[in-house]
Every structure is written in C-alpha cells, then in structure tokens.
C-alpha cells in the first residue's frame, strides 16, 4: 500500500465549542410529518383535488338554478351546454346539480364508513391489545373468523335482505370493515403499552380509559389515519359497485354510483351521462389513495427511503 505523507493531512477546523451547537430547530413529530408530506407532490395534488371536491360538494348544488330531483321531460338527454353544464339525464334532471348532490352522498358514505370503522376498530383493538392474555386471544380469534368472511359478498347479502338505503349501506360496509382497523390498533397498542410513560401514567393512578385516550391512541394515530384514508375510497368504490348490481340508492336520490350505472345503459348515445360521474369516482379514489400513500410515507420515513 502507498504510504501517505503526514503533510498531506490538514485540520479543516472542528472547534470543540461547535460540537454541541444545534444546527436546526427541533421539530415535533407531527411538524416533521407535515414537512415530509408537503414535499410529496403527488399527495399535495391529491389534497388539492380533494379540497376542490369538498368545496363543490358543498356549494355545487347551489351554483345552478336547477334542482337535482326535478324532472323536466321536455329536456331529456341534453348534451352539456350553457344552460345545463353537464347535460341532463333521461328524465331531464340537471346533471350538474345531480353530480354535486351525488358527491355529497358518495363522500358521506365514505367518511361515515371510515368513522364507524374507526370507533369500533379502535375500541376493539385497543381493549384487546391493552388487556392482553385471554381477553386478547378471545377478541382476536373472533376478529380472525370474521376476517375470513368475504367482504363484498356479505355486503351484497345485507343489501339484498335489508333493502338499499343510506343507513343499511353504511351498516353493511362496516360489519366486517372494522376488523382491519382493530388489528392495526391492537398491534400498535401492544408495542406501546410497555413504554415507560404508560407505566408512569399507571403509577399516577390514571384510569385505563385515560391511558388509552391520552397516551395510546394519539401515539397510534399515524397508522389509524392512513387506514382511514384508505377506507374512504374503498367505501366509495363499494357504493358504486352495489349501485351497479342494482342494490344502490333509490331515485331521485343520486350518488355517483347510481349515476354511473344509469349512464352505462346509455353510453352509445349519451356518453356524457357516464363520463362525469365516472371521472369523479376515479378522481376521488385517486386523491384518497395518493393522500393515504403520502401520509404513510411521511409517517414512516424508513419506508420512504426504500421506495
């Protein structure tokens, strides 16, 4: 090996006083997550789409003078124009008003399904994880058995029997939907409950509920949020799927699923009737998916580096 002369080395300057200096302000976990999330262009794009969708769902139905449920048999199947911006359907109902009314219902179904999954899943998984032992074993075995039941088939069955309306639809989706959440929460609680701060809280006499609500759930919030974001597009997709099977909401109520299903029948002659709901379903599913992925990457930077 080549010998390197000592003169070739030089001190570039590392002062002892600088060693302890903090170069960056310290960030809380969520601030850090926010910064990482903002750098993800695709996820930010998803957020923008989602905000626009929500704004339109709130104000869209008031932007046109037409009502979503009023038939106008003189103006059926009109192409998109200055008066009817998205055209009209086979009963002359304004597609623009219907589309945004449908946005409300589709988003409502998605959000409600995610919220109910959240409540049941967090309670079930939280208790199972925290109690451990026999209770955990028993609760998770029930979840395992339910998990084996095919989701969509069960949803179809419920809709056939109970009849299609908003409540039964959300109910049917959450019957087995919460299990995924319960499993994730249980896993998180299992790994968190032996941390020192939980012991400290216990020592101070905090109740189980308080420990769960103040310490365990907030710390598991990352994975919970990701799961919820990915539940919403799934529910919107399921709604569209059920509508296609004729198990959707009954008219004049409109959801994107029922509108797309109506549009399917008329695609040869009036393609715009499928176009608007279809594009919106796809955009919404897309937006929630990229937001969910972005959140997951932002919460766990280790995963991000792998991708």
């Amino acid at each position: 090996m080549e010998q390197i002369a000592k003169e070739k080395f030089q001190v570039v300057g590392a002062k002892a006083s600088d060693a302890e200096k903090i170069s960056k302000p310290s960030l809380s976990f969520w601030k850090d997550v926010r910064i990482r999330f903002r750098k993800n262009k695709l996820a930010m794009f998803g957020i923008i789409i989602l905000i626009l969708l929500i704004i339109m769902a709130i104000f869209g139905p008031y932007m046109t003078k037409f009502d979503y449920a009023t038939n106008d048999l003189m103006n059926t199947n009109k192409e998109p124009s200055g008066t009817h911006w998205f055209g009209t359907d086979d009963l002359g109902r304004d597609m623009f008003a219907r589309t945004w009314q449908g946005a409300r219902i589709s988003l409502l179904i998605g959000v409600m399904a995610a919220l109910i999954d959240f409540v049941i899943g967090v309670t079930w998984g939280g208790i199972a994880g925290f109690k451990g032992g026999r209770v955990d074993e028993f609760m998770m075995r029930i979840a395992d058995i339910l998990y084996g039941v095919p989701y969509l088939l069960l949803v179809i069955l419920f809709m056939v029997v109970l009849g299609a309306n908003l409540t039964t639809m959300i109910l049917a989706m959450t019957i087995t939907g919460w299990i995924n959440m319960a499993r994730i929460v249980r896993g998180e609680v299992l790994s968190l409950k032996n941390q020192e701060y939980v012991l400290a809280a216990k020592t101070l006499g905090a109740s189980v509920t308080r420990i769960m609500a103040r310490h365990l759930i907030p710390n598991a919030m990352g994975s919970i949020l990701v799961t919820m974001t990915l539940t919403i597009p799934n529910a919107i997709f399921t709604e569209a799927f059920l509508s296609f099977l004729g198990l959707g909401l009954t008219p004049p109520l409109a959801s994107w699923g029922t509108m797309a299903n109506d549009g399917l029948a008329a695609i040869q002659y009036y393609p715009w009737r499928l176009f608007f709901p279809a594009v919106l379903i796809a955009l919404t599913i897309f937006a929630f998916n990229v937001i969910g992925d972005g959140l997951r990457d932002a919460l766990d930077p280790r995963l991000r580096n792998k991708e």
Binding site: F244, A260, L274, A278, A282, L283, I285, F286, N289
Partner: peptide
C-alpha cells in the same frame, strides 16, 4: 387502481 372495473369495462 383509481378506475373501478365496471367503468374500465364500459370504456
């Protein structure tokens, strides 16, 4: 992933 199969099929 974003386009439901029945819409994909129809298109």
């Amino acid at each position: 992933i974003s386009v439901p199969s029945f819409i994909m099929a129809t298109f």
